[in-house]
C-alpha cells in the first residue's frame, strides 16, 4: 500500500498552527502592497495581482542577456515554418500550443589550463608481400610513446542549476560561450518583460564555480588531448586549470510547443538572437523514404563487402560500421520524431 495513503487525510484536521519559520518568506509588493511569495529560486519575483516585477539581489552580480520579445519570437517561429523545406507546405496545419520564456542561469568562465601527459599510441602499418606467388597482407602494430605539454585558454559555460534537463538548454550553453558578454545588462537595471514565465535563480553558488570548472575543463581537455595526439591510452595526464574570472549570467530561452496533425512538437529558440537551438519535428513520408532507402543501401553494401573480407581483412570493420549505421537508420525511421539543429 502506498505510504501516502496511510496518512489520515480524511480525518478532521486540527486548526493549522502558524507555519514553521523556514516556510515561504512573504514580502509585500512595493507597487500594490499585495503579498508576494518568495521561493528558494526567486531571483525575480512577480506580483500576481498587479504584475509588478522585482529583482532580488542574491548578494553577487548577475548580468542578463536582453531577451527578444514574445512577438518577435512568434514571428521568427512562423518565418522558420514557412521557409522550412519540410514543414513549409504544412504551415496551415500548424497551431501554436504554448510559448514559454525562461531565463536560464549560467556561469561564463574564462580560464587557462596547463596540461602534461605521457601516453601511448598504437601505429599500424599494412603492407602487401608476395609469398610464393600469392599476395598476402601483413599488418605490423607498434606502440609509440608520446609525451607533450601545453597550455590552453578559453571560455566555458556552466549551468547554474543542478540536475536540470530541458529542451534546448545544452545547445544554449554552447551558444553562451560564443556570445559577447559585454552585451549584458546588470540584472538590477534590466527591464523584465511581463511575459517572463520564470527567471531561474542560481542554486550553484559562485563559491562552487572554481571546483566545478576545474573538474569539467580538465576532463574535456583530457578527451581533446587523446583525440589530438591520437592516443590509445594515457599513462599519466596532469592538468592545472586556472579560472581567471567568471560572470553569472541569465540567458533567455523560448520553448514553443506546436500542434501538427493533433500531435505536439517543440522548438527551442535562443531568446538572445532568436536562433533556433533545437527542434523536435515529425517524421514525414520523405524522411521515411530517406531513412529506409539509406538503411537498404547500407545493408546491401555491408553484406556485399563481407565476402571480400577474406582477402582484405579490414573490410570487416567497414561492414560492422555499416550494419550499425543501417540499424540506426531503421530506428530513426520508426522513432516518430526528428531532432533538427
Amino acid at each position: 500500500m502506498p505510504q501516502g495513503a496511510e496518512i489520515p487525510y480524511s480525518t478532521e484536521p486540527p486548526p493549522l498552527p502558524p507555519p514553521p519559520e523556514e516556510e515561504a518568506e512573504v514580502f509585500k509588493c512595493p507597487n500594490c502592497g499585495a503579498p508576494i511569495e518568495v521561493t528558494p529560486d526567486s531571483l525575480v519575483v512577480k506580483c500576481r495581482y498587479c504584475g509588478y516585477i522585482e529583482y532580488r539581489d542574491p548578494g553577487y552580480d548577475v548580468f542578463v542577456f536582453p531577451s527578444l520579445s514574445r512577438e518577435e519570437i512568434t514571428r521568427r517561429f512562423w518565418d522558420r515554418m514557412r521557409t522550412d523545406s519540410d514543414m513549409g507546405k504544412y504551415v496551415n496545419k500548424i497551431s501554436i500550443d504554448s510559448i514559454t520564456n525562461i531565463f536560464v542561469p549560467f556561469y561564463v568562465v574564462d580560464y587557462d589550463a596547463q596540461y602534461f601527459f605521457v601516453g601511448e599510441r598504437r601505429e599500424t602499418r599494412t603492407r602487401t608481400v608476395n609469398v610464393s606467388g600469392r599476395v598476402v597482407t601483413q599488418t605490423e602494430v607498434r606502440v609509440v610513446k608520446v609525451r607533450d605539454s601545453g597550455s590552453v585558454s578559453g571560455v566555458n559555460a556552466i549551468l547554474g542549476r543542478r540536475h536540470i534537463e530541458e529542451l534546448g538548454v545544452k545547445e544554449l550553453s554552447t551558444q553562451v560561450k560564443q556570445l559577447d558578454i559585454s552585451a549584458t545588462v546588470h540584472a538590477s537595471k534590466y527591464k523584465w518583460g511581463k511575459e517572463v514565465h520564470a527567471v531561474m535563480g542560481f542554486d550553484i553558488e559562485p563559491k562552487e564555480v572554481n571546483a566545478i570548472a576545474r573538474d569539467v575543463i580538465a576532463e574535456r581537455l583530457k578527451t581533446w588531448v587523446k583525440r589530438k595526439y591520437r592516443l590509445d591510452r594515457l599513462n599519466v595526464y596532469l592538468c592545472r586549470v586556472n579560472v581567471k574570472n567568471f560572470k553569472a549570467v541569465l540567458v533567455p530561452i523560448y520553448i514553443i510547443t506546436y500542434r501538427f496533425r493533433n500531435a505536439i512538437y517543440s522548438i527551442a529558440f535562443s531568446g538572445v538572437d532568436g536562433r533556433q537551438l533545437v527542434a523536435i519535428e515529425p517524421v514525414l513520408i520523405k524522411h521515411l523514404v530517406m531513412y529506409l532507402g539509406g538503411a537498404a543501401a547500407t545493408t546491401f553494401v555491408a553484406s556485399l563487402a563481407l565476402p571480400f573480407a577474406f582477402r582484405w581483412g579490414h573490410l570487416v570493420f567497414l561492414s560492422v560500421a555499416l550494419i550499425i549505421g543501417a540499424g540506426y537508420l531503421v530506428s530513426r525511421a520508426l522513432g516518430g520524431v526528428r531532432f533538427e539543429r
Binding site: 515561504a24 521561493t39 528558494p40 525562461i102 520564470a198 535563480g201
Partner: peptide, 8 residues
C-alpha cells in the same frame, strides 16, 4: 528536474 523553480 524541469526548469521551473522549487518552492519551500
Amino acid at each position: 528536474f524541469s526548469l521551473r523553480g522549487r518552492e519551500y
